[in-house]
Simulated assay, not measured.
Amino acid sequence: MVVPESTDAGDDAMTVTMMLAFILLVLMVCIGGVKGFGAFISLWINFVIMIAMLVMINFGFNAVIVLLIGGVLLLLVTILSAGADDEITSITMGASFIVMVALIILMLPAEYLNLAQGFAEENSEELEGLSLSIGLNFVSIGLVAAVVATLGAIAEASIAVTAGTYELIEHNPKMTATEIFKTGSQLGYQIVGTAVNTVLFGFMADFLSLGVWYAKLDYALGDIINSKLFVSTMLSMIYAILGVILVLPVSLGLIVWQHRRRHEST
């Protein structure tokens, strides 16, 4: 006789998740007010967008096209939730989209060459007895996962750089384009440095359990470097750092271009 598995663990996990989500909502509303509530709603909207991207890729839609459309929507929701004015929002959106496209162009050959797609040896026990013929291109899936993982850091860094630079321009509207770029760069270095540290800390948190796994199984350094899980995690971190770094010159370039257009029109 087969005894059905208990669902108590799943119910408990769902209860804890809902409690934490409610606590997050209360804190965001108390600290951020209406903007905090909007940011909380944007989290769930982004979650729905990512689920929709997953379903569309599973149904056989071109992964790159789904990535471009879904990426734009994710950036749009994230940037609009910041509550900035129209000019800052448009520049931030433009800079984030340019960086996203640049990363996709960079990632396409990198994902084909690194051979880190698909399931790793560490997944063999969980996948035993299951078919891996899912009819999807693992390179495309890896590309989508890598880009989506970088979008949050790109959007946040672009918003911070753009909003900070415009604050400086408001205090000194007679700044030249060269002065704007130079002053914005000094501000951006600090913002980018903080964002890079955030990405690095996230990587270390993700790698902690994997590092313990490698240590317990006495992996040699060569085995670790050639492990699919390690390579894919490391590449995701590098992509995110590159995206954050590229945001600074692209955002400042668009700000300077917009500043020149405004002065030429007047």
Score class of each variant (00 low, 15 high):
40 F>D: 06
21 A>P: 08
113 L>S: 13
118 G>R: 12
256 V>G: 05
218 D>K: 08
86 D>M: 07
33 G>W: 02
263 H>Y: 14
163 A>T: 08
259 H>G: 06
143 L>T: 03
190 Q>G: 13
191 I>R: 00
48 V>S: 14
162 T>C: 02
30 C>Q: 07
54 L>P: 01
152 G>V: 04
81 S>C: 04
36 G>W: 04
253 G>I: 06
262 R>V: 10
209 S>I: 11
202 G>A: 01
147 V>Q: 00
202 G>D: 01
233 T>P: 02
8 D>C: 04
79 I>S: 06
145 A>F: 05
92 T>F: 03
26 V>L: 13
194 T>P: 03
176 T>K: 06
45 I>E: 11
222 G>C: 04
124 S>H: 09
15 T>K: 12
87 E>F: 02
8 D>F: 11
65 I>H: 06
22 F>W: 11
189 Y>Q: 13
137 N>A: 04
49 I>Y: 03
175 M>Q: 12
107 M>S: 15
155 A>V: 10
57 I>H: 00
54 L>A: 09
230 F>P: 00
94 G>E: 02
126 E>D: 15
78 T>P: 02
187 L>G: 08
112 Y>Q: 10
41 I>Y: 08
25 L>C: 12
235 L>N: 14
241 I>W: 00
11 D>T: 04
72 V>L: 15
38 G>R: 09
86 D>W: 07
46 N>S: 13
170 E>L: 09
48 V>A: 15
54 L>M: 12
16 V>E: 14
75 L>C: 12
245 I>K: 02
258 Q>E: 15
161 V>F: 00
224 I>Y: 09
121 E>N: 14
165 T>W: 02
29 V>Y: 03
46 N>E: 14
20 L>N: 05
185 S>D: 06
202 G>P: 00
70 G>R: 13
111 E>I: 15
260 R>C: 07
